[in-house]
Structures are given as C-alpha cells and as structure tokens.
Write a protein that binds this DNA or RNA. Structure first.
Lengths: 183, 183
DNA sequence: GAGTATGTATATACCGAGTATGTACCGCCT
DNA sequence: AGGCGGTACATACTCGGTATATACATACTC
C-alpha cells in the first residue's frame, strides 16, 4: 500500500511514469529501489479506481498523469491517518525465532548469534553510507536514520532473546519459571 | 517468504493444513493471524517445488503433508542463513515521511506527532498484553518483545525526525547546514 | 558511417503473498 | 428437526513485486 500512496502523493503536480520512479528513489535515498513496471501497473490501477487520470502528454511526448479530486482526498487522508500498528507487518526474523524455539533440532542460540552478526554488519553499512554523505539531504537522511534505529533495536532484541533463552534453559529444571518481571 | 519457510519448519513431523495454521498462530502469539487459505496455496506450491509431499491421511481423514529430503535441506538452510538486511523491507512510515518533506502542502510536524501518538498507543497495548500473561510462553513472549522494541525504536526515530526537521527549518535561512555530527 | 552500448520511457506477462468466499462435515443446543 | 459454531479443505481474486519486451534517442567506437 505504501507505493500506491507514495505515487499519489508525488502526483501533486502532473508527472509521467519514469519521472515518478526517479522521484521516489531519490527521496528514499535508493534504500528501496522501485521497479519501473510497478509504477505503470500501479498507475493503471489508480486510474481504474478513479484516483488518477491521464493528463495528455508533455512537449517530449511523455504521457502525463494527474490526480483527480478523489485522488487528492485520498492523499490528504493518507497523511492525516497514522500508519496502522494494530496489525503490524509480518516480521520474518521474529517468526523465525518463534518457530525455532519450538523445533528441537534447531540451535536457537546459534541462529541468534548469526543474525546478530549480520545485523551488525548491516548497521555498519548504514553508518558508512551516512558518513559518506548519503544522508545529507533531508528525506534520504531520515530514511537512513530509520534503518539505523531499526537495526539497533533488532540487536537489542536479539541480546534480550539470548538472555531470556538462557533463563528459560536454566529454569527448565526448576519448579516453575516466573516471567513478566523484566518488561 | 516467511510464511513459506515457517510452514516448512513446522512440518518437522507430518501435519495437516489446519493444524499448521493453529501452530503458527500459537507460536507467534496471535500477533500475525494467518489466513487458512494461504496455508493451502503455500502447501500446494511447496508440493509443486518438491519440498513437501502428501503423506496420506490420519485416522480422522485429514490429509497430511510431510517434508521431502529437499524440504529438510531447505529448512536447514533457512535456519543457517540470517535474514537479509541488504534490501530491507519497504517501510511505509519512512516512505511517508520521506515523501512528506518534499510535498509543500503537508505539515510534516503534524504527521510526526500523529504517528507518535498512534505508536505510543500501540506500545501500551503490547505492554498490557505482556502484563496480562500473553507473553508467558517463550515463543509468544519473544514475538511480543520484538513488537515492543520496534515500537520504541519508532518513537525514538520520530523524536529524532522532529529535532532534525526543526534544525532544517532553522538553517534554511542560514548559509549552509552542517550534517552528520549526530549519529 | 555502421554497429553497438547506454539511458529514457512505456507496457505487459508472470509469480508469490494475502484476503474473501464457498462448501462440507461434525457436535451441540433447544 | 433445525440452527449454530467450530473444524477442515479448496478456489477465486486482488495486490505487490520482478522480469522482460519494445521503441527511441544519444553517445561511443572501430
């Protein structure tokens, strides 16, 4: 849903498909490359739904799109409504660990350690990017910061998992574990 | 990709479709409800790809699925390989802000504030769940912790965005902003 | 100048993820 | 007997995302 609304928002002024992709990638700092094909399929769906209409061609013959009234309302609504957190994005890593703890043949501690290394490396990559000036423009900088914050949180969570796993293993022989005292 | 691999991992012993959904939802603590239909479509794709095969029916006539050799290898590979962070999940909130700062008619500060409130509320919901004992079993607890950590990181990031936006607004008249000294 | 890489621009086919819906069966309740 | 809800499976459909095809312009090169 994010691509759809992002394209709508970028259509504040009439633009053509290829331009939309360039704008999107520039703003998100190339962190999320956007396939051109998706721009056109999304545009045609938006046209079908009456949020966008073809607006002729520019001097170079490129076909322009522009917002309809309904489209403008949709954009406003998107910005006025916070991103849903009631049904958060399915998270592969959390699923992986949740399943792993229930499958006896998997060494969960090892999975955690491997992930920690990988995330650490990614984090260093982001910091390198930031230092190299990729985050100097405002939008791209915020996106990069977002990735940094998320990676840091992931590492904290992995450490927390390790501790909790150790505790669970230790108390598996004890009468009854007492949970909930650490949040 | 996460559902596919999670189902494969749960197939350590032969199971039937409905059971797989129940197992998945129990382990992830109902944070990510899984549509039953997706279980069956995923299973048939896995069968097509030779990772899973039909294993007859149980005493109650439910059709069982089991891992093939290739399936077992796939599961092992999944657990041995950390989750990719080179092309991170597209994040609606980051995209929203990145686009918003470039669209003059949007009050970015307001968007940030609204999101902060919404995320704060979600966070309190998670903590309530944890207190009410939803996180007492290990797997579900880790998933819930993951959501808490992610929400906290999001709030930190939103605060950081506010500060950076204020600085950008202040320095838009000044000669040249100096970035990068805050990470 | 012919050939060929490269970038811009659009369009379409295809697959996987996810949702909604339909159907059948079973036990339970009144 | 009829209705309700839970179990179990199946299929249709939409959407997000990738790969690919096509056309045209520019630029490089042999």
């Amino acid at each position: 849903m994010s691509v759809k609304h992002a394209l709508l928002a970028l259509l504040e002024k009439p633009r053509y498909g290829y331009e939309l992709r360039a704008e999107f990638e520039q703003r998100t700092g190339a962190s999320w490359p956007l396939n051109v094909g998706q721009v056109y399929t999304t545009l045609s769906r938006l046209e079908r739904d009456g949020l966008v209409e073809a607006g002729g061609t520019d001097a170079e013959g490129r076909s322009l799109y522009q917002l309809t009234e309904a489209g403008k309302v949709e954009v406003k609504g998107w910005f006025d409504t916070p991103v849903e957190r009631t049904q958060p994005q399915r998270d592969e890593l959390a699923i992986k660990l949740a399943v792993a703890v229930a499958v006896p043949s998997v060494d969960v501690g090892k999975v955690v350690q491997q992930q920690r290394n990988a995330t650490m490396q990614a984090l260093q990559g982001y910091r390198r990017q930031a230092r190299s000036g990729a985050g100097d423009d405002l939008a791209g900088g915020l996106v990069l910061d977002r990735l940094v914050f998320a990676a840091e949180a992931e590492i904290r969570w992995l450490d927390h998992c390790e501790a909790r796993l150790r505790r669970a293993a230790a108390s598996s022989t004890a009468p009854e574990p007492v949970e909930g005292g650490d949040r």
